Computed example of a mutant assay.
Amino acid sequence: MISKVFKTLPLLLALAAPLAQADDFFTKIEAEPKSEVWIDSGFWTAHFDSGKGLNGNNKGLGAEYRFSGTMAAVGGRFYNSDREWSNYAGVIWQPYAIGPVRVGAALAAFDGYPKMRNGGWFPAIIPTLTYDYQRVGVNIGIIPSYKDRLYGGISLQLKLKVFE
């Protein structure tokens, strides 16, 4: 049942995309300066193709520096779906919100996936939702599949604010 929900979520998001024009649905976030440092966990991933025996417990550690209301620099290391260590570095750009949830995308580079550029670095755009409450938060990434090289899913990352 849960896997069916995760498989249909990208379709539902695509169908909801026209609502981005509705002023009462999305709110534009102001890009005012901020200075917040977060420590991020690895990821817990529900893969769209759950029958391949992929690793969904992507242990790891990362950091996030939110320098404006719409942007944060991110970087870290995690044990990926192919059971190899991966590194990532990039930015999260989230110019919109639905209530308290920021909406946008992570623009990042990753390595460590053996079937993608022989484990070398590659760029990715990952739709990302973020919810922060005081000193705790969560990032949710909707990872697209790419041929037989990268396996898509919905990833959850917990975070803790350590400086403001």
Rank of each mutant, 00 (worst) to 15 (best):
G120W: 01
G53N: 04
F67I: 03
A63G: 15
S68P: 13
G51P: 09
S81V: 09
K115I: 05
L54M: 09
A124S: 13
V101A: 01
F67L: 09
G75V: 10
S81A: 13
S68L: 11
L61E: 00
G104E: 04
G112V: 03
M71K: 08
A105G: 14
G51A: 05
A73Q: 01
Q94H: 03
P123T: 13
Y96H: 04
S86G: 09
S50P: 10
R77K: 11
L107I: 14
T128D: 07
V91A: 07
G119T: 06
A97M: 14
G76A: 05
L54A: 10
E64S: 13
L54P: 15
A89F: 13
A109Q: 12
G62E: 02
G99T: 07
G104V: 14
W121T: 14
F78N: 02
V103Y: 03
R83N: 15
V74D: 00
G112H: 00
I126C: 05
R117D: 05
A109W: 14
F78Y: 15
V103L: 06
V91K: 07
A105Q: 02
P95Y: 06
G62W: 02
F78R: 04
D49G: 05
K59D: 13
G119M: 11
W93R: 12
S50E: 14
A97K: 15
S68Q: 13
G119Y: 07
W121K: 01
G99W: 13
K52L: 15
G76F: 00
M116D: 11
K59Q: 14
G119K: 11
Y96S: 06
R66H: 00
A72F: 04
L107S: 03
A106K: 09
H47I: 00
T70E: 08
K115C: 01
G99E: 12
A109H: 01
A73R: 06
P123D: 10
M71H: 12
A124V: 03
F110S: 00
W85Q: 09
R102M: 12
